[in-house]
């Protein structure tokens, strides 16, 4: 039996964020919170490995109580359990603090985990730093840019990953941390029965104390990086718009290009 942990994140759907034309500020209202697509692929990768080799999959996330939604989604996709790390002390954690907290949770609840599967990055931060940092805190090797996990046997996993300009199939001894890169995958529609099963699976909640976090390493105070200023991005180019249907405008645009 292989023990798989997938670390996942709830994110705002950044493609739905718009800028208020009057004030130039971001309109976050009504922007849905979703399971980060890379994390969804991470869960899918875990599930596909489970189809090859008997495994248990635990989805692990840090966030507010509402982040349970993505654990339910992960379980509907095929994860067996869900763990929510939720604590006010976690608020304001940067990449290093987040990686540390996830590592503490894994050491506490799955000390014998074989594979930690992460998504390459989250679409709200786009840093791709947490998976690598997590591997350091767990003292495990890190395999980035994984496309598929093919099979597992004898304490090793065969997988395909990307190098700078090619793909390789490699065998990696467990335990290790890997990150799943963009693949050619489409989001699956889930059968209702799976969602119902997920909804009736209890979710474990853990606090900072329960996973024995050093308070100097977590939250805003435990984060080495600090955001000191946020600027809205203003679009500036503002060229001319022509309506193709309108003959005069069509003529004008063609003339302007000739």
């Amino acid at each position: 039996m292989i023990e798989i942990i997938t670390t996942i994140k709830q994110v705002p759907d950044t493609s739905k964020i718009r800028v208020d034309k009057e004030s130039g500020t971001l309109i976050r209202k009504g922007v849905p919170a979703v399971l980060n697509p890379y994390c969804e692929w991470a869960v899918e990768a875990a599930v596909s490995l489970k189809e090859q080799t008997p495994s248990t999959i635990t989805a692990l996330t840090m966030g507010p109580p509402s982040a349970e939604d993505i654990l339910i989604r992960a379980m509907a996709l095929g994860a067996d359990n869900g763990i929510l790390l939720t604590d006010r002390k976690f608020a304001g954690s940067d990449c290093r603090a987040t990686a540390y907290i996830l590592a503490q949770a894994i050491k506490f609840s799955a000390p014998n985990a074989d594979i930690i599967i992460t998504g390459e990055e989250a679409i709200d931060g786009d840093t791709a730093q947490v998976p690598a940092e997590l591997s350091v805190f767990l003292d495990m090797p890190f395999i980035p840019y994984v496309i598929t996990l093919e099979s597992a046997d004898d304490g090793a996993v065969t997988l395909i990953h990307e190098r700078e300009n090619r793909r390789e199939r490699i065998r990696v001894k467990t335990p290790f941390v890997c990150s799943i890169t963009t693949g050619f995958r489409t989001r699956r529609l889930l059968p209702l029965t799976e969602t119902i099963r997920a909804l009736s699976t209890p979710i474990t909640r853990l606090s900072a104390t329960e996973i024995a976090c050093d308070e100097k390493m977590i939250g805003l105070k435990g984060s080495p990086t600090r955001v000191i200023k946020i600027e809205n991005v203003v679009t500036t180019r503002g060229g001319k718009t022509f309506h193709w249907e309108n003959r005069n405008e069509r003529k004008a645009v063609i003339e302007s290009l000739v």
């Binding site: 705002p12 950044t14 493609s15 964020i17 800028v19 971001l26 679409i123 709200d124 931060g125 786009d126 080495p224 990086t225 600090r226 955001v227 000191i228 200023k229 946020i230 600027e231 809205n232 991005v233």
Partner: peptide, 21 residues
């Protein structure tokens, strides 16, 4: 060092410092 990077899908530019490390 003030490190400036796009965030939130490029909707904002964040100014970031690490003063303690």
């Amino acid at each position: 060092l003030i490190q400036i990077r796009p965030a939130l899908g490029g909707n904002i530019m964040a100014h970031i410092v690490s003063t303690e490390t």
